[in-house]
Design a protein around this nucleic acid. Structure first.
Lengths: 121, 121
DNA sequence: ACAACTCGTTCACATCGTCGTTACGGGTCG
DNA sequence: CGACCCGTAACGACGATGTGAACGAGTTGT
């Protein structure tokens, strides 16, 4: 626990997810994710407060750098994009959790197994 | 102004339950619970007077912010919702106890083991 | 310069979650 | 046993969130 202020040099880890903000790169179980700037930025800010609920307004301010206008759905849309890519990279995991009326929370949680998928036959 | 208002910053603990009112979040043994606004609010108010019996009218006033009308069953319904989620998160524990004719009391109590579930054979 | 592509933004519609309510039945107490 | 208290499921309405798609601006490759 050296210094606090600049997030630089850091690696953010959330379960099998690794995020290297300075390198503009995120890895899922070692494999690099193909994320756009906004996507990576959003994931990064979520990861900085992993396992805590973040309001849309807070996220928007951190990622877009300006106040969020009422009714703006940008955060939702990008959460969706992230979910699709994370799901593709790490099926069986769930990362971005909706807290109705509050915001989103990032945390690596295994998906409830729906044991009907492997019909080993 | 450092008066009563600072329920903030607090963590309410009841056995394996943790409640972070400011963060709109409650945890069961570390794992985040998915509660709605009302549910969280009700749990919070119960937790603030843990182990003491609270009348429905008192709870309603604290959670809904207005007087409870006679015959209103809202508190009962939300107690039920909480019980379901707490039971799912921490089976083997009992949290919200009914005091017939008086109200409810929050306290973490281990469930009496009904040792008939493991038929080891 | 042009075409092909990526990205960000915005919209419209679909789906889901929450809330307050009600009804019914079982539980509890006198 | 009878009156009341409580547990519980279900409903409709409303708002919040999920989702796919269109559009234009900017970028890259040729």
């Amino acid at each position: 626990m050296a210094l606090a202020a600049h997030h630089s040099r850091d690696v953010l880890e959330v379960g099998p997810l690794q995020i290297f903000p300075d390198e503009h790169l995120a890895r899922a179980g070692g494999r690099a994710l193909m994320l756009s700037i906004r996507e990576l930025r959003l994931l990064t800010e979520l990861a900085r407060r992993a396992d805590r609920i973040m309001a849309r307004e807070e996220l928007f301010l951190l990622v877009w750098g300006r106040e969020m206008k009422a009714g703006d759905r940008s955060v939702d849309v990008y959460v969706r994009k992230l979910r699709v890519k994370l799901e593709a990279a790490l099926p069986g995991w769930s990362f971005i959790h909706t807290h109705f009326g509050f915001g989103y929370r990032l945390a690596a949680e295994p998906l409830p197994q729906s044991n009907k998928q492997f019909t080993t036959g």
